[in-house]
Design a protein around this nucleic acid. Structure first.
Length: 901
RNA sequence: GGGCGCUUAGCUCAGCUGGUUAGAGCGCUACCUUCACACGGUAGAGGUCCCCGGUUCGAGUCCGGGAGCGCCUACCA
């Protein structure tokens, strides 16, 4: 027999000492590389499980949101992999059109250059060089977090394969008549010099002014007053609108107004969109510079006049003295002239919502422009139906209404962008201006009958390629084995902030092109905020960097914290203090393992256990282990990562460390050995580490590899070992559960008595037991027999400092008498003890009496007794009994102490 | 204007289909350097569950109304 072996483990764990080692090892051994099974019909063929990473921007750095989502994706992937699924987590990056182009342009600007100086071709070379430089960053950061991606399948949205998918999708949608090219009023960003989609417009309150301007009526002395926030656009007015039922203005219908300054005559139109109560009830209509007016103009067949150009400058159509002025200057000049003409009636401060370009921050300028549009109405109906009939489940389900509302009110998607970095639109024009949409230049030439073609200079909205991500990454439009096997994917995890940008569009495209929802379930996470709940932003300086956090707390603590804080439908306030707490949890796991290894000698991790030979403490921890395995599984099935982590934490720290290891100690002592304690210790530790592995992969691998005989569980790695399943046979019987409760209560009573007297664990005590009633039912005999048994006495000795358990009347002077299930327990300390603080006792007594009143009142209510279920009534009765006994004890202690004092 | 969510201990949050004296982490207090762990142990203090009303034997939990906060959405110029 070996005595205490030397365990070469530090007292404090140090994540840095092993995290990168294991990440390298896992990558080198290709544990996470997935393959389609050769024979899908074979018995025991693995079921696929697939998650597509929401591709981070290629030039980007991972932020806390990525860290959160990656943690959850990895957690699910590792869990399913251990459950035996062929689990693929496919990584990749997004070319992020505008974001990336802006970064490179900013870099160019430092050298005093613009992209136009370089020209399209050389500029794109520059961007590709950037891409090469940054590509590896994302992987490095995911590796740091412990991500178990299959990097052999890494994809990039501008890869040849994905680009082919983009062209294919575009051409098919064009052929179906869903994609069209035309001139419409679009959201124009003068900051980016491109059109943007509705989603990229951010509505923000802006402090403006509301001006009231008088328009003379033609052939009349009358004037009509109009309210506007944009007087400069009156140069492009083509009508004035009033509500059809507005008595004040009915007589004007059919007449004409004179546009101030411009002098043009414009008609009055009656339109129901006009709010009679706002302003004067008369609206100027500028179809080419206002979204609402565009619609009004269409309804009434009004022409439009473009007075502002794509740079935000006034056009010649605005008049010679305005042409070339920017909007602000033009406004001032218009106001000066109106004042001079006596037509400016009123001016007031005005707060209203205005559209800003999300990316560049400038005010969006509605502008007439020729763009490509995708009519998504039919696809939206599909996406809506999929959600409603359950093919696509949103978690939390509360997002359903938002989903419905957006899809029901969807408008055409402007998909062209006046940028260079991205998928160039697969449309070619000949000298005659004819347009040929085709999969390649050759195909377009074949259509045209000649090769004198120029490709459309615009690129597609980045989200167009992202929308194809779940299947373009698997080889679509080819009918690949990957696509057949892994598609549709199992789960999507992403932030609610891109529900429309990305999730809805993937659903639409996926359903349209493959006939299947691209994912069965979508888990939408909240936003990661700072400790005070404030949104992280560079300007506020409260941004936490996942890389820094991993450096400080270790990846496992970061992961555990993020997963634990992910409660459904809630944002995540991230306090680094909290991470320190879960780093301590890592240390706890480390030291529990260290303890076990120092005690088990040559014992190997058992693969099965002789359950019938086990004593109560061993049975109890196996029962808790089994319950935990069940609850963690159930929680993960529902994406309740918070519950899963809490249960694991509680099981490991409270059940395993605080109770089981303490109980195991006496069972390991020479002379008092219980059967199979070492085996159970190792078995529990092995399974606990495996249960924890999906959320804390590094620590668990490091420790699991140290367990003697772990190779029998899996020859190589915990990553591929089986996830522990609940064992129904290990659940304690109710009689055994009662015994365990009794034992724990007894320990707590003794500890309380000791603490009340400010004694230390060195002050030993005797425990006196008696039946509390004159007649002694069986259960109490059992209870006393249990508490006086040798094994329990040994446990009470090591855990509660009880020297001896006696069945006898406590000696005089011992007033404390706790009654539990008909057994009275009194603790007598060896040392002369101080009286318990009477103030505290009186407080307890008061509380106790209040409760007695409450419970008694309930039991005396006839209705309660008549209508409440049996169990609840019995519970209340028992409760009352316990409270009354407690009251008696407190009174006795108080009385005795007062006599003594 | 429409929709959604939140309001529970000093802080950040759990509380499933209503059922004993409402929980966790951190923080706080007291005692303990006990041979796995001071990133520890034991014990403890701390809450009119936002307000009002209703249903019920019983409401943090269900229903109605209100207040405050947050987010999404929207053609009152």
């Amino acid at each position: 027999m070996r005595t205490t072996p030397i365990i070469e483990m530090e007292k404090r764990f140090d994540p840095k000492s092993y995290e990168s080692h294991w990440q390298n090892e896992w990558a080198a051994k290709e544990y996470f590389v997935c393959a389609v099974p050769a024979d899908l019909s074979a018995q025991g063929a693995q079921q696929p499980y697939c998650i597509m990473i929401p591709p981070p921007n290629i030039t980007g750095k991972l932020h806390m949101g990525h860290a959160l989502q990656s943690t959850l994706q990895d957690l699910l992937t590792r869990w399913r992999r251990m459950q035996g699924r062929n689990a693929l987590w496919l990584p990749g990056t997004d070319h992020a059109g505008i974001a990336t182009q802006l970064m490179v342009e900013r870099d160019l600007a430092k050298a005093g250059q613009s992209r136009q100086d370089l020209g399209r071709e050389r500029f794109l070379e520059r961007v590709w060089a950037w891409k090469e430089q940054y590509q590896g960053n994302i992987r490095k950061q995911l590796d740091l977090l412990g991500a178990s991606c299959d990097w052999t399948r890494e994809r990039f949205t501008l890869d040849e394969g994905l680009s082919r998918a983009v062209r294919e999708a575009f051409v098919r949608l064009y052929e179906e008549g869903r994609i069209t090219r035309g001139e419409y009023l679009v959201n124009w960003s003068t900051g980016l010099d491109t059109a943007i989609s509705d989603l990229e417009v951010e509505m923000r309150p802006a402090k403006d002014k509301l001006w009231k301007i008088a328009y003379p009526i033609a052939d009349s002395k009358e004037r009509v007053v109009v309210a506007t926030t944009r007087p400069e656009t009156l140069l492009g007015d083509t009508a004035l609108a009033v509500h059809p039922d507005d008595e004040r203005y009915r007589h004007l219908l059919g007449k004409q107004a004179v546009v101030p300054i411009a002098g043009r005559l414009i008609p009055f139109v009656a339109d129901e969109s006009v709010e009679r109560g706002f302003g004067t009830g008369v609206v100027k209509v500028t179809p080419y510079h206002d979204m609402a007016d565009f619609e009004t103009g269409r309804r009434h067949g009004l022409p439009g006049i473009q007075v502002i150009d794509r740079k935000g400058l006034m056009t010649a159509a605005a008049g010679a003295e305005f042409a070339g002025l920017d909007v602000e200057a033009a406004r001032e000049l218009v106001l000066v002239k109106l004042r001079a003409a006596g037509l400016l009636v009123h001016e007031e401060d005005y707060l209203h919502n205005v559209g800003f370009c999300q990316r560049s921050g400038v005010r969006v300028q509605p502008l007439m422009s020729t763009q490509w549009f995708c009519d998504v109405s039919a696809m939206a109906a599909q996406a809506l139906a999929a959600q409603q009939d359950g093919r696509l489940e949103l978690v939390p389900a509360s997002w359903g209404k938002t989903w419905e509302h957006w899809l029901q009110n969807i408008r055409p998607w402007c998909i062209s962008r006046q940028l260079w970095w991205g998928h160039q639109i697969p449309a070619w024009y000949d000298e005659a201006g004819r347009c040929f949409v085709a999969r390649s230049r050759e195909e377009a030439a074949a259509q045209a009958g000649h090769d004198r073609l120029t490709q459309d200079g615009d690129v597609l909205d980045t989200w167009f390629s992202s929308a194809l991500w779940p299947f373009s990454t698997l080889g679509w439009p080819e009918k690949t084995a990957d696509l057949a096997y892994f598609y549709p994917t199992s789960v999507l995890i992403t932030g609610f902030d891109i529900l429309f940008f990305w999730v809805a569009r993937m659903a639409m495209m996926g359903l349209h092109f493959t006939g299947q929802s691209p994912f069965a379930r979508v888990h939408l996470t909240g936003l990661v905020r700072d400790a005070e709940g404030v949104k992280m932003s560079k300007t506020k300086g409260n941004v936490l960097d996942p890389v820094d956090l991993v450096e400080e707390y270790g990846a496992d603590a970061v992961r555990f914290t993020l997963a634990l804080l992910d409660s459904p439908g809630r944002d995540i306030p991230l306090d680094p203090e909290r991470m320190a707490g879960y780093r301590a949890f890592g240390n706890k796991i480390w030291n529990a393992t260290r303890f076990a290894l120092s005690k088990v000698g040559d014992t190997q991790v058992p693969t099965s256990i002789g359950y019938a030979r086990l004593a109560l403490p061993e049975r109890w921890i196996l029962s808790r282990l089994s319950e935990t395995a069940a609850s963690v599984d159930a929680a993960l099935e529902e994406f309740r990562f918070d519950i899963a982590c809490r249960d694991l934490y509680h099981f490991f720290w409270s059940d395993f460390c605080d109770w089981y290891i303490e109980m195991a100690k006496s069972g390991l002592d020479p002379g008092g050995e219980r059967l199979l304690v070492k085996e159970v210790l190792l078995l529990t530790l092995d399974r606990a580490l495996r249960l924890l592995h999906p959320v804390m992969p590094f620590l668990t691998e490091e420790l699991w590899q140290k367990l003697p005989g772990h190779e029998a569980i899996h020859p190589q790695t915990i990553c591929l070992s089986a996830y522990p399943a609940p064992e129904a046979a290990w659940i304690l019987s109710s009689a055994e559960t009662e015994e365990m409760v009794r034992f724990r209560e007894t320990v707590t009573i003794v500890r309380n008595e000791r603490a009340d007297r400010k004694l230390t664990h060195r002050d030993k005590a005797e425990l006196y037991l008696q039946s509390a009633k004159s007649e002694v039912p069986h259960s109490e005999v059992d209870a006393i027999r249990f508490l006086t048994s040798e094994s329990v006495q040994r446990l009470l000795s090591s855990m509660a400092g009880i020297r001896k358990v006696l069945v006898a009347e406590p000696p005089p002077g011992v007033a404390n008498r706790h009654i539990r299930d008909g057994v009275s327990l009194s603790v007598r300390f060896d040392v002369v003890v101080e009286a318990v603080d009477p103030e505290k006792l009186r407080l307890e007594l008061t509380k106790c009496e209040e409760n007695i009143v409450k419970v008694r009142a309930r039991l005396e209510s006839a209705e309660f007794v008549a209508k409440a279920p049996e169990a609840v009534i019995a519970g209340a009765r028992k409760n009352l009994e316990t409270l009354e006994l407690e009251r008696a004890r407190l009174r006795a202690v108080l009385e005795m102490d007062s006599q003594a004092g």
